[in-house]
Design a protein around this nucleic acid. Structure first.
Lengths: 132, 132
DNA sequence: TGTCCGCCTTCCAGCAGGTGGAAGGTCAAG
DNA sequence: CTTGACCTTCCACCTGCTGGAAGGCGGACA
């Protein structure tokens, strides 16, 4: 299977697929003409990567997950631990963003948006005015 | 005021403060000994940067906000527009992350986390098992 | 057989937004 | 006078790609 096909199947740009090979995440065969030749196994790994990356796992974390994924004897406890850690990170991030959202909402709501030089957004960001 | 003090006051690492000078976000005085000499105005700008960056504004957006901030005659409408755009981006990001959180939660909840090789997290990530 | 186009290859450079470290100058305390 | 904390510059490196140049390969069509 050529890289273009795999790109479509995995949802990853060809450039990214080659990059993942560079950093040792996959190891496709080569044909006589030098073209990369991907198996369905490779496609699975790439889809795995695409999903994990979009879930917020770093490339290094993906590498770990991938090795657990490939290792039929791995203990699911390890995977669970990794996922749990990531879960709490994501939860923390959501809370943070909600704080930011509330602040911005407040600022936008209180900014008259006309030509007067007073602007609660600017004052809020500079720390001059209390935000909450 | 030396960079170390400003670092504490602004919540930014000294390295980052120098970097912000490099890219023209700030322009502190210099003393005879070559040390940077920051004013309270600089501290305000840096706190502004720290807050805006942590709110998810890009450095370029910060530069715009900062110029609006410095320009006493700017129109707050511009600021409001910038903040509103950022607000909807943040809201979109929150929704995305909530999706990821739900998926991970589901996976973690369904993983027994023992030594058995079956692991719904791995299966979910690889796309073998339906996640929702 | 030529030739066209689209796909494939490698390599090199660059993006954001910093961070780390080396090599050396400065200042205040003891 | 030395020690140690702080400051300076400079250059390289990080993540996770992305873009572009230059050239090879494969199948369709004339």
């Amino acid at each position: 299977m050529n890289i273009g096909t795999v790109s479509v199947k995995s949802g990853l740009p060809a450039k990214t697929i080659r990059y993942y090979e560079d950093i040792g995440l996959i190891r496709p065969d080569r044909r006589d003409n030098g073209y990369r030749d991907y198996s369905m196994e490779d496609v699975h790994r790439l889809r795995f990567l695409q999903r994990s990356r979009s879930l917020g796992f770093s490339v290094e974390e993906c590498r770990q997950l991938l090795s657990l994924y490939s290792d039929r004897d791995r203990e699911s406890a390890e995977v669970k631990a990794l996922a749990s850690t990531k879960l709490s990170e994501i939860e923390r991030k959501i809370v943070e963003l909600q704080g930011l959202r509330d602040m911005l909402r407040h600022l936008v709501a209180n900014c008259h948006g006309d030509n007067r030089p007073e602007c609660p957004i600017i004052d809020g960001l500079s720390g001059k005015a209390p935000v909450h």
